[in-house]
Amino acid sequence: MEIIISILLLSGSFFIFLSALGIIRFKDLYSRMHSTTKASSFGLLLLLVGVSLFFNELNVYVKTILVVVFIYLTAPLAAHAIAKSYREKDKE
């Protein structure tokens, strides 16, 4: 069990690190948005699953499901808001 939790924590923080590396390496805003939307929310998903397996209590599971659903609903929406406002500015 501890091994599974360790792997989940390590890979979650590694995916968040990857998304930060992507925001440095990509060349324009839209490509950077790909990296911040996908990789960072996947890393948070892995971290949250690891944390809830570590505590193994009902209220932690409920909060974990809440945060996961919220993050996966809102990460594309935030990217959409930024990209739309950038595009409106770009058109002028």
Partner: peptide
């Protein structure tokens, strides 16, 4: 976009810290 990413990193930090001091309240 960088601020959005920094918020995600802080969430991850808080989660790992909750495992570190073993308090479920930090969720």
């Amino acid at each position: 976009a960088a601020m959005d990413l920094i918020a995600s990193i802080v969430i991850g930090f808080v989660l790992v810290y909750a495992v570190f001091i073993q308090m479920g309240l930090y969720i």
